[in-house]
Nucleic acid binder design. Structure first.
Lengths: 236, 236
DNA sequence: GCCCCCATGTTGCCGCCGTCAACATGTTCG
DNA sequence: CGAACATGTTGACGGCGGCAACATGGGGGC
C-alpha cells in the first residue's frame, strides 16, 4: 500500500472503502509523487494505478479523465493556500502588514507544496476550469487586503492586488523552476525569508510608508545607507 | 507549404534545402502554432510532421527528440527577449528608468510571443538545459541594470535583480494564464501599459524616488490623492 | 563528367499512454 | 435473500515518441 498517513481525506468525498482502502486518495498521492519526480509530463494514470496496486482502468471510477485528477490536486492546493493566507493575515492588523503576510504565506505555501502550486497554475487547465471555490476564496482574500491598503486613495484595488500577486507569484515561479540559487531558496524557510526581503525591496509610493515602522516614513526619501534590508524581527 | 514568410531563418543552421524547402523551420513553426492552439500538451512531433507535409519520422533528422525541438524554441525566445530588453534599455540613461524599461520590455515580449515565453519557462526543460546563451545574456542585462540601481548602497544586486524579475515574471505568467481580465491585458499594448502601472505601484524605499519625476520625491510620503496612475507619456 | 557518399526523408515496428466497453465482484439495502 | 449499484478487471483501439532499416537525390572527389 502506498497510502501514507499524510493524506488528508478531504472530507467531502465518498468515504466507503469497497475493495481498495481509499483508492481516490492513493491515486492523488501517487500523482503528486510522480509529478514531484519527473514534472507534469511524468504523470500517467496507468503509473498511478500501478503504484496504487490496481488495474490501469480503475482510476476512471474516480476521475472522469486525466484532467479531472489534476483538477482535484489544484482544488486541494487552492484550499490549502486560502487557509494558509487566511491564517497568516489573521496575525496582523495593519493593512500593509496583512498584505505582506499574504505574500509571504503565498511563497511559503508554494515552497511547501511545489507540486500543488505547479498543478494549480499549469496551463493545461488554465482557461478550462476557473471555478475552483478555493481559488475564488484565495483571490477574494487578496483583493480585500489590497482594498484595505489602497483605502480611499482612489487607486484601483484590483490593480493593487494584481501587483502584489505578480510579485509573489513571479518569485514563486522562479524558485520552483530552479532559477533562484539554492543558497537563497533551498529550503521553504529560506524561501520565506527571501520573500520577506523581496517584498520589502519593492515597497513603494502607493503604500506611502516604510515597512519597518509607520512613523519614520521620511527614511524612504533617500537611499538609506544603513537600516535597509529590515530583519523580519519575528513579526507576529 | 505551411512555411509562412514570418519565419526568421535563424541564420545559424544548415541552409541547404534538400527535399523539403526548410523542414527545420517549418517544424518549429508548426510546433509554435500547435502550442498556441492547444497549449503544451497539444504539441506532437507527428502532427508537426503532418503539417509540414512530411512523414512522422522526418523530424528526427532535425531534432534528436521532442525536448530538442522545445529547446530550440526556447533558445529563439531568449535571444529575442535579450534583444528586446537591450533595445528598450538603450533608450534610457537613468538606472531606474533602464530597469523599468527592462521590465516593460519583458512583459511586452511575452505578450507578443506567448508561446515562446511559455516554452522558455516550461518545467519540462527547467533543470535539464540551463545553458541557453540567450538566457545568460538576458539575465546578465538584468543583473547589470540592477547593479546600477542599487549602486553603492550595499544592497545585494542579485536580490534586487531577483525582485525586479519576480514582479515582471509574475505579471507575465498571470497574463498568459488568462488570470488578468482581458480589459486590462487583452492586447500586447494593454499588457505593456499595465506593466508600467504595476511597476510604478511597487516603487519602493530601496529605489528612493518616484517614477514620474525624481524631483518630487516628497509625494511618496503620503498616499497621493491625485497624480497616481501616471499615464506612460511615451517615455523614450 | 561520373560516381559514390551521406544528408535527408520514408516505412514499419515497438511499447506506452488515454480512453472506452464489457465483464466480474462485493456491498448495501429493500 | 436477492437485486441494484459502486467498484475494480480485462481487453481493445488509436495516437504518440522513438528506433531501425531502407530509399533517394544532390554535391564533392576523382
Amino acid at each position: 500500500m502506498f497510502v501514507h498517513p499524510g493524506v488528508v481525506p478531504s472530507a467531502d468525498e465518498p468515504r466507503h472503502a469497497y475493495h481498495h482502502g481509499d483508492l481516490r486518495a492513493a491515486l492523488l498521492d501517487a500523482a503528486v509523487a510522480l509529478i514531484a519526480e519527473g514534472g507534469l509530463p511524468a504523470l500517467s494514470l496507468r503509473e498511478c494505478a500501478r503504484r496504487a496496486g490496481v488495474s490501469h482502468a480503475a482510476p476512471y471510477r474516480h476521475f472522469v479523465d486525466k484532467d479531472a485528477l489534476l483538477l482535484a490536486i489544484a482544488r486541494q492546493g487552492f484550499e490549502w493556500l486560502a487557509d494558509a493566507a487566511e491564517a497568516a493575515m489573521a496575525r496582523h492588523k495593519d493593512p500593509v502588514e496583512r498584505l505582506d503576510a499574504y505574500g509571504v504565506a503565498y511563497v511559503r505555501f508554494a515552497a511547501d507544496h511545489p507540486v500543488h502550486h505547479r498543478v494549480m497554475f499549469s496551463a493545461s487547465l488554465g482557461t478550462a476550469a476557473h471555478e475552483h471555490e478555493g481559488e475564488d476564496r484565495a483571490f477574494d482574500l487578496l483583493l480585500a487586503a489590497a482594498r484595505d491598503v489602497v483605502g480611499a486613495s482612489g487607486a484601483d484595488p484590483l490593480e493593487a492586488a494584481l501587483a502584489a500577486w505578480s510579485l509573489t507569484h513571479g518569485l514563486t515561479m522562479l524558485i520552483l523552476d530552479g532559477r533562484v540559487p539554492a543558497r537563497l531558496a533551498g529550503t521553504p524557510a529560506q524561501a520565506e525569508a527571501l520573500a520577506r526581503r523581496v517584498i520589502a525591496q519593492w515597497r513603494g509610493p502607493l503604500l506611502a510608508r516604510v515597512v519597518e515602522d509607520p512613523s519614520n516614513a521620511s527614511t524612504s526619501r533617500r537611499v538609506p545607507s544603513g537600516g535597509r534590508r529590515p530583519k523580519p524581527k519575528s513579526r507576529g
